[in-house]
Design a binder for these strands. Structure first.
Lengths: 143, 143
DNA sequence: GTCAGTGCAAACCCTTTGCAGAAAG
DNA sequence: CTTTCTGCAAAGGGTTTGCACTGAC
């Protein structure tokens, strides 16, 4: 979906329009942070990145906007930590490493993990997506 | 690991001892609820199931005990919903369906989803486990 | 003027913590 | 006795909400 980072302001606005998100000033600021590089950021991190220079966007707007972006498919929510949600600008199918010691999250290189066909879904449901999380820890250094 | 449900009180205590968990009265009550059937329960649900007849276990103890069980490998935490943690008595490797509309969680029948080899892990880390969650929604009924 | 978007603060909810009392051996 | 657990209430932290204000058309 995104083939380079960072996206320019104009490209961000374009993408928002494509996804049916009205590109207001604050939303564009937030989207520019998200699409500056492939990354995984929490709402709190977005808040401080956006307001690094001067306060531009309030906390409520950050949360509302991230929720809106996720609903519209502009970004993907990654649920790996019970204490916070991460937002991922890469919406194409891919998986994640999660370091339970440090809280770091990385992308798993596409195709490096083979996934078979979907099993039969529960009656009356349709698939929305598959989340694969490989939990890792810092390997004990044996001195 | 568990080959039948429900586990009797004695079997639950046995299992706790095997895992190095001191089987106190409250912990046994909680474990009996967890191992009564294959299921996925939140802390809140455990709380009300345990105290269905009469109040036996406090909220703090429920949370402390579930955390202890998870650390000791007696149960598995399932992180699919940013608002709460589910506890799963089945610790053998398996995956999950999660209905984003209803919040329901099911087991995916073992082996119905093929997983390839693990990709190379990030430097200095070791794998702790893989969580695969297939998110589904209620399919729109087209009348 | 109208309606979507924003900001602030308060409210919420799940979870954790501090500490005193109870239980176990 | 000493150590481990438990319970209560309060605190914590991420997220959501209510409502008035702002801004774009």
């Amino acid at each position: 979906m995104i083939d380079k980072y960072p996206l320019s302001r104009a490209e961000v606005i374009d993408l928002m329009r494509q996804k049916g998100v009205n590109p207001t000033q604050q939303r564009v600021e937030i989207a520019q942070v998200l699409f500056s590089e492939p990354q995984h950021v929490s709402a709190e991190q977005v808040m401080s990145l956006v307001n690094k220079q001067r306060a531009i966007v309030s906390k409520a707007t950050v949360y509302n906007t991230l929720g809106l972006f996720a609903r519209k498919g502009l970004v993907r929510e990654v649920i790996v930590d019970p204490t916070k949600v991460f937002y991922d600008p890469t919406t194409a199918p891919h998986h994640h490493f999660y370091n339970i010691d440090t809280g770091e999250l990385w992308d798993v290189e596409q195709n490096s993990l083979m996934l078979g066909d979907l099993p039969p879904l529960p009656e009356g449901t349709k698939a929305e997506g598959i989340d694969v999380v490989i939990r890792v820890s810092n390997s004990a250094v044996t001195p």
